Computed example of a mutant assay.
Amino acid sequence: MIRAEQTSDKEVLKKVYDIRREVFIDEQNVPEEEEYDQYEDSSYHFVAWDDQVPCGAARWRETADGIKLERFAVIKSRRGKGVGSALVKAVLEHVASLPDTEGKKLYLNAQVSAMPLYAKFDFNPEGERFMECDIEHQKMVR
């Protein structure tokens, strides 16, 4: 059974960073200095579990433009099994549960291949596509 939850537990955060390393750095060749940034400590982090196995990660943070969802990663062996959807749902529920986020714009920079996932949650493309770390992205807003 897939479940996703917010975490600040140090041991679980290590697993979150391991998932991001596997997906972004090892698989997609994102430079390590681009993947881990100054926002790690000011973000809310999420982990997805398939039974007891950590298999997905995400985070959100507040920016001058609103609430930015980012760093969604699912390990290759668990893709297509609802992990990404569980993460998006958990992040959106968490954002909605906090009183100071009400009415703020929700947005993300989606890898183009992941746009259908975010569209299921009413995110719509805005602006032109762009390259980030040699991967085509599209800003999406809800």
Rank of each mutant, 00 (worst) to 15 (best):
R61P: 03
E35D: 10
P116G: 02
A119R: 09
W49C: 02
Y118C: 02
D26I: 14
S85L: 07
G66N: 06
P116R: 02
Y107S: 08
A73G: 03
L106D: 01
D65G: 12
R129G: 10
V141Y: 08
Q38I: 14
F24C: 05
P31H: 05
R61K: 14
I2P: 00
R142W: 00
V23L: 08
V53A: 11
C55Q: 05
V95Q: 00
Y107I: 08
F24Y: 11
P125I: 08
S43L: 04
E11S: 14
K139Q: 13
E34P: 10
D100H: 15
R71Q: 08
N29S: 14
H94K: 04
V88F: 00
N124M: 15
V53K: 12
K76C: 09
K76E: 14
V95Y: 00
K104D: 00
A96M: 10
Y36D: 11
D41A: 14
E34S: 15
Y36A: 11
D50N: 11
M140E: 05
V53Q: 15
I75C: 09
S97A: 04
E70A: 05
R59C: 04
A114R: 03
I19R: 06
Q6A: 10
K81V: 13
I25L: 03
R61E: 07
F123H: 02
V74H: 04
V83W: 00
Y107T: 06
F24V: 02
W60P: 01
F123W: 03
V74N: 04
K10D: 13
A57P: 02
A96Y: 12
Q38T: 11
R79F: 03
S8M: 10
T7L: 07
E93A: 09
P31N: 10
E126A: 13
T101Y: 12
S77M: 10
A4Q: 01
T101L: 08
E128F: 09
I135K: 06
V47Y: 06
P54Y: 04
R129T: 15
L106F: 04
E136Q: 14
I135W: 04
E102L: 14
Q111R: 11
K81F: 13
G56Y: 00
V47C: 10
Y36F: 14
R59M: 04
R20L: 14
I67L: 15
K76D: 15
